[in-house]
Design a protein around this nucleic acid. Structure first.
Lengths: 122, 122
DNA sequence: GCGTTATGCTACTAAAATAGTAGCAATGCT
DNA sequence: AGCATTGCTACTATTTTAGTAGCATAACGC
């Protein structure tokens, strides 16, 4: 890829731990995380970036039908909370923090497989 | 509590593994899981039910400002995919499958704490 | 019985999030 | 220069979620 214009923007309104987030006034970090991951496409984007680094356009394709508006919002959110970083000429990639989160999410693939099997047999 | 009328309904349109879900035609279970957990309030509801069983009204309170419409939709979804069960006179509770999912989600509390600390120091 | 309280839940409208489409500006390539 | 690709915005349409009110049933106290 040959990315240009990689951003350095004021970013957006991601749910920050320590602040009030949707569904919790407490500022508890786990609630901020739920708010973040509970937004459509967020986990999917992290998942794709964990497979391999992607440009904006590549993410659009691998995520299927995500709209550029939402993808851009999510990328801003994820950069704001230091899970994703935009590297010039390299596209988007997970930060070390992002990768550490994926250590929790990744095993869910196997869990989901078992879950699917179980649902089939009932 | 003294619940009555606990449901036995046709339920709703939860993302089922093996079927097309939002963002994936593949039917891969992990994608269905992302679709499910990526709906607002879903993780929070699971979280609360993992702390202790709750009635509908109790869930409304512990989740803060969730609307009954959405809570009801989520509970239907979660029952449809066998993560939550409605037990007469006992309210809602996680199934064994639901509990096993929480084994993956629960450690995220500690992760989120570290994440919050890291965000503060930058 | 009778009023009170609590339960699960629906109906309805308003607000917000997301989708969908088109296209611009900047860069790279030939 | 001409063309393709990049990141991204602007705009409208659609879907999702929020918010409020309230119904129907059952339990509780008296």
């Amino acid at each position: 890829m040959t990315s240009t214009q990689l951003p350095s923007s004021p970013l957006s309104d991601a749910p920050l731990p320590g602040e009030k987030v949707r569904g919790s006034e407490s500022g508890r970090p786990i609630m901020a995380l739920f708010d973040l991951l509970g937004r459509r496409w967020t986990m999917r984007i992290l998942w794709e970036l964990n497979q391999n680094n992607c440009t904006f356009r590549e993410l659009q394709q691998s995520c299927g039908k995500i709209s550029p508006t939402v993808l851009n919002q999510r990328l801003k959110d994820l950069r704001e909370v230091a899970l994703v970083i935009a590297v010039d000429k390299q596209g988007y990639q997970l930060t070390e923090t992002g990768k550490s989160l994926m250590l929790h999410i990744e095993p869910m693939r196997d869990w989901a497989q078992d879950w699917a099997d179980q649902l089939k047999h009932k």
